[in-house]
């Protein structure tokens, strides 16, 4: 697997206090007895540039004090132990109008100054908006080694070009298919972006909503990478937080079966179990939403990494 570093220190032309390096594995996840696992998987917290309307009330409550201010939110996420921050831009801004490039740049800059962690910026997920907003962000943050997303097979050229020109990385997202993942990586690298600046997001379903596909696709990508397939040797980022909190189990507290148990605990279990399963299958960056899940996943990763080289 390739090693990829997110974020740039001042000496490297950025402003980050810390950088994050992922990848570099030469074995299946945590199989330290037969290869190198030089960098542990890292955990990112997802924040938005404004209070999200469609998030679970549990999350809104958790981040209540900071949710209206991306800078504060980022600082809180850092304090909660995040290794990096994912900032997801919204389509309509606070006033219900389309977010302008200037607003996007302002949010990104605010987050960058509030935290020393590396940053991943996702566009709102609509091709045109993604392209205009991310180009502006990319140019305004030249040299920061952000990861810009999301590149998809129908819309990748603009984002890749701007990342290439401004020293950033990209995340390449494909819908749970080994071949599609590989194909997008090829398309992006055909444009000339070096492979060590591409993160792949093979996507996943949440627990109960297709996690098994995400799980197997990631295992297969890792196996292919270990067999020498260059186009699958990219570190993987997945968004179990987004997926798990979309599930009814996390979003809804009332009118659900009694067998589902306590809402908050269930929601956190949902996110934690989704994330852990994906960590087991080879995720290098997991993006979460709740600080408690973050804590649990990080401590599990520590325990996984603690295994001494073990020879049978």
């Amino acid at each position: 697997m390739r090693t990829i570093t997110l974020g740039a220190l001042p000496a490297e032309g950025g402003t980050r206090k810390r950088v994050v390096t992922v990848g570099g594995e030469t074995a299946m996840p945590f199989m330290r007895f037969e290869g190198e696992i030089p960098n542990p998987p890292v955990v990112a917290i997802e924040i938005k540039d404004r209070k999200p309307e469609d998030w679970s009330p549990l999350l809104i409550e958790t981040w209540e004090d900071v949710i209206d201010d991306p800078a504060k939110w980022a600082a809180a996420a850092e304090a909660a132990g995040a290794d990096l921050i994912v900032l997801a831009l919204s389509l309509p801004n606070r006033n219900g109008e389309p977010t302008t490039p200037d607003e996007a740049v302002a949010s990104v800059k605010a987050v960058l100054s509030a935290t020393g962690l590396p940053l991943i910026v996702f566009g709102p997920g609509q091709a045109e908006a993604d392209n205009t907003l991310l180009v502006a962000v990319s140019e305004a943050t030249k040299g920061e080694r952000l990861a810009l997303g999301i590149c998809e097979d129908k819309n990748y050229r603009t984002i890749v070009a701007t990342a290439m020109a401004n020293g950033h990385l990209v995340t390449a997202r494909t819908p749970m298919d080994v071949n599609l993942a590989k194909q997008l990586n090829i398309l992006i690298s055909d444009m000339g972006l070096p492979l060590d600046r591409i993160l792949m997001d093979p996507t996943t379903g949440a627990l109960g909503y297709g996690i098994e596909y995400g799980f197997s696709v990631m295992e297969r990508l890792r196996l292919a990478a270990l067999q020498g397939d260059k186009m699958t040797q990219l570190p993987m980022i997945v968004t179990p937080g987004f997926e798990a909190w979309k599930a009814k189990e996390s979003k809804v507290g009332e009118g659900v079966p009694k067998a589902w148990g306590d809402w908050l605990n269930r929601a956190i279990n949902w996110e934690t179990l989704t994330a852990m399963t994906l960590v087991e299958s080879g995720a290098d960056i997991v993006v979460l939403r709740h600080p408690e899940s973050l804590k649990r996943v990080k401590s599990a990763i520590d325990e996984l990494m603690a295994a001494k080289a073990f020879v049978s």
Binding site: L207, G208, I211, F215, E249, G261, D262, R266, L273
Partner: peptide, 17 residues
């Protein structure tokens, strides 16, 4: 605890499809 048993049973169901 229901809130743990439920996701575990689902995870098991998913992985073994």
């Amino acid at each position: 605890a229901e809130e743990l048993i439920y996701p575990l049973l689902v995870l098991r169901q998913n992985i073994y499809t």
